[in-house]
């Protein structure tokens, strides 16, 4: 069961709730595979995607999820709307509510913004990424993908590699996989590992070869070039040498290890092209599963599955 008004983060979810959401996403994936990818389940419901940051895949994924379920969906961008005129998030949220929004999907550069919005409106709020805080639908689709391939999550060794400090994907996955009984390791340069991360129950590595030993799942994070200007690492060449996933390194992991990437990838930097296109990569399936997971979220947050 999922009985909350909103979906703001994985941290506040129980293992049972996560499992229930993943279970609900299964039948949704069946719908996407049909010849006619549309069911009337959410007819008459309105979904607003409110994005204060650029995003193609997350936004497109939520929009398609809404459309496959027959909800009406509209987009608002931070740059083109009243936000550019200085309207507060509170007022924007109240306006969307008055327009009849049942669900507001929010992407925002600042941590906690979805919490503020959720407190301000009666509509369900889905966090589609808030700064370095959480990106719960990404973690759910990652877990869905791994569970589908591996049959379960408990006992798996999951390694997340890259800029952990600035990554909401890393945080949501840390909460999600640890709650589901997996062992989580993180690996990255010491300037990109935030203080006190061990308290979340993960093991921290700086040597990628050590971190990958026996890994069942490898989640590669995108490295942002602007972090170099902030002085967090000296350059892409050195970064790639230390934290790039290549054939040699992949062989240190378990033979059937999965490679995930939330996208968009920097080919040749954090991930070699032959790995990204290789048989162990599930990066494209992640995208499809993302739609299924988001259909499940929209369905459950508009009252579906309540009985």
């Amino acid at each position: 069961m999922y009985k909350h008004k909103d979906l703001l983060g994985i941290r506040e979810m129980s293992a049972e709730e996560i499992g229930f959401l993943l279970d609900t996403a299964g039948p949704m994936k069946e719908i996407i595979k049909r010849q006619i990818k549309k069911v009337p389940t959410l007819r008459g419901k309105t979904v607003v995607t409110l994005f204060y940051e650029n995003s193609t895949r997350t936004r497109g994924s939520f929009e398609l999820a809404a459309k496959y379920l027959s909800a009406d969906s509209i987009n608002m961008s931070g740059s083109s709307s009243s936000v550019a005129k200085g309207e507060s998030l509170y007022d924007t949220g109240r306006t969307l509510q008055s327009l009849g929004a049942d669900v507001i999907v929010l992407r925002h550069p600042m941590p906690g913004a979805p919490r503020l919005l959720a407190r301000s409106v009666k509509a369900a709020v889905i966090n589609a990424g808030d700064g370095a805080h959480e990106h719960p639908s990404q973690a759910l689709l990652d877990m869905f993908t791994v569970r589908e391939k591996k049959g379960g999550l408990a006992g798996l060794r999951v390694v997340i590699v890259g800029d952990i400090m600035h990554s909401r994907v890393a945080r949501s996955n840390i909460w999600g996989f640890t709650k589901m009984g997996a062992e989580v390791r993180v690996c990255g340069p010491s300037t990109m590992i935030p203080v006190g991360l061990e308290e979340t129950g993960v093991q921290v590595f700086h040597q990628m070869d050590q971190a990958l030993d026996g890994a069942d799942v490898i989640i590669m994070l995108r490295i942002q070039k602007e972090r170099q200007q902030q002085g967090l690492f000296p350059g892409l060449r050195e970064y790639s040498r230390l934290y790039g996933l290549n054939r040699r390194r992949l062989e240190l992991a378990a033979g059937d290890a999965l490679v995930l990437h939330p996208g968009p990838m920097n080919r040749g930097v954090e991930i070699a092209a032959d790995i990204a296109d290789g048989s162990q990569a599930v990066i494209e399936e992640q995208v499809t599963n993302g739609v299924a997971v988001r259909m499940a979220l929209l369905y459950l947050l508009t009252g579906g599955g309540a009985q």
């Binding site: 906690g112 805080h133 006190g196 308290e199």
Partner: peptide, 15 residues
């Protein structure tokens, strides 16, 4: 404050 809790919330910490 920069610490485990700022890490959890994803907020920038002041050391």
């Amino acid at each position: 404050h920069e610490g485990a809790y700022s890490t959890i919330l994803g907020l920038k910490g002041v050391p």
